[in-house]
Simulated scan of single mutants.
Amino acid sequence: MQQFDLPQAKLIYDSDFLNSEFANSVFEELYNETNWIQEPIKIFGKEMMQPRLTNLFGKKSYSYSNIVMKPNPLPEVLLQLEEKIEEAADSKFNVCLANLYRDGRDSMGWHSDDEKELGKNPIIASVSLGGERMFHLQHKTKKELKQKFVLAHGSLLIMAGETQHYWKHQLPKTKKQVSPRINLTFRQILD
């Protein structure tokens, strides 16, 4: 487990959070049995399809970038995973946003998970499954403060404290040949 020493952030990364057998089975089940959707999103006033597929599991709706996602019940495999993640993050979660990155053309641009319904200092617990991808962080005002690292299959990244106030993150496109990747971000949506 690695804790990053970044100002105004609390980041914990465990590259071996899940054993490969369990990580493989979670990936296969979600990849094959999830009703993945692709929704339009507005970027700089222009509507386009999101460059990834998504689904929401849990007990609450979730909104971001003018998209309102309605939750599906957590499948058994995610219930098992949620229990393990809640223990590692020392936090409770009520939704899991699942993203499927089909190849290197799928991505997530610079953003912070700072929606009002996540509260003041949200804890975001992110599990990576499948193909490894590069993850970037950058301070919002001190642009020279940057961090990047590879998100491994079966890894867990916890972003907590003031991270979402002061930092933004992205999963950039890549021209490298990469396998499909599923990212599961567990969050607590407030009432």
Rank of each mutant, 00 (worst) to 15 (best):
Leu145Tyr: 06
Leu97Arg: 08
Gly154Glu: 02
Gln2Trp: 15
Cys96Thr: 00
Gly154Arg: 01
Gln164Lys: 00
Ser179Phe: 09
Met48Gln: 15
Glu86Ile: 01
Ser126Ile: 06
Pro40Thr: 08
Tyr64Leu: 07
Ser65Phe: 04
Ile158Met: 05
Pro75Cys: 09
Ala88Ile: 11
Pro73Arg: 12
His139Ser: 00
Trp167Gly: 08
Lys46Leu: 02
Gln177His: 14
His165Pro: 14
Glu47Ala: 10
Asp106Glu: 15
Asp114Tyr: 09
Lys120Leu: 12
Tyr64Thr: 07
Ile41Val: 15
Met159Pro: 10
Lys176Leu: 15
Ile123Pro: 00
Thr141Leu: 11
Asp14Lys: 10
Ile85Gln: 06
Gln170Pro: 14
Trp36Ala: 03
Gly58Asp: 03
Pro180Met: 13
Asp90Met: 04
Tyr166Asp: 12
Val26Gly: 09
Lys120Tyr: 08
Glu117Tyr: 06
Ser20Pro: 01
Gly161Cys: 05
Asp14Val: 03
Gln147Phe: 11
Ser107Thr: 10
Gln164Tyr: 00
His111Tyr: 01
Gly104Gln: 02
Lys142Phe: 08
Leu157Arg: 14
Gln188Asn: 11
Leu118Val: 13
Arg187Glu: 02
Ala160Asp: 15
Lys10Trp: 10
Lys143His: 09
Lys168Asn: 14
Ile43Phe: 00
Val178Gly: 13
Phe27Trp: 00
Asp113Pro: 03
Val68Tyr: 11
Phe135Cys: 13
His136Ser: 04
Trp110Ile: 09
Glu87His: 14
Gly45Leu: 08
His153Trp: 12
His169Cys: 07
Ser128Asp: 00
Met159Asp: 04
Cys96Trp: 03
Pro180Cys: 13
Ser112Val: 05
Met1His: 15
Lys140Cys: 04
Leu137Glu: 05
Val150His: 06
Thr185Leu: 00
Ile43Glu: 04
Asp191Leu: 13
Gln80Glu: 12
Arg181Trp: 02
Tyr64Arg: 02
Ser63Lys: 07
Asp191Met: 10
Ser61Leu: 10
Asn72Ala: 01
Pro7Ala: 00
Ile43Tyr: 00
Ser112Tyr: 08
Gln80Ser: 15
Tyr166Ser: 14
Val127Glu: 05
Arg187Lys: 07
Leu30Phe: 06
Thr163Gly: 14
Val95Lys: 00
Gly104Asp: 04
Trp110Gly: 13
Ser65Asp: 05
Gln38His: 07
Leu171His: 13
Asp113Cys: 05
Leu81Ala: 03
Met159Val: 08
Glu39Asn: 09
Asn55Met: 02
Leu184Asn: 07
Val95Arg: 09
Asn66Val: 02
Met49Pro: 10
Ser155Ala: 14
Ser63Glu: 02
Ser20Phe: 05
Glu29Gln: 15
Glu87Cys: 14
Arg105His: 05
Met48Ile: 15
Ser107Phe: 11
Ser179Arg: 09
His136Met: 10
Ile182Val: 15
Ser65Gln: 10
Asp113Phe: 05
Phe149Asn: 05
Thr141Lys: 11
Leu81Tyr: 04
Ala88Trp: 06
Asp103His: 07
Lys140Arg: 04
Leu81Asp: 01
Ser112Gln: 01
Met1Trp: 14
Ile123Ser: 06
Leu18Asn: 01
Asn19Gln: 04
Leu190Pro: 07
Leu6Asn: 00
Leu184Ser: 10
Glu82His: 02
Phe4Gly: 05
Lys142Arg: 11
Asp106Phe: 11
Met48Arg: 14
Ser91Asn: 15
Leu81Pro: 08
Thr34Gln: 06
Ile41Arg: 12
Trp36Met: 02
Pro122Met: 08
Gly58Leu: 06
Ala9Pro: 09
Ala89Lys: 00
Asn19His: 12
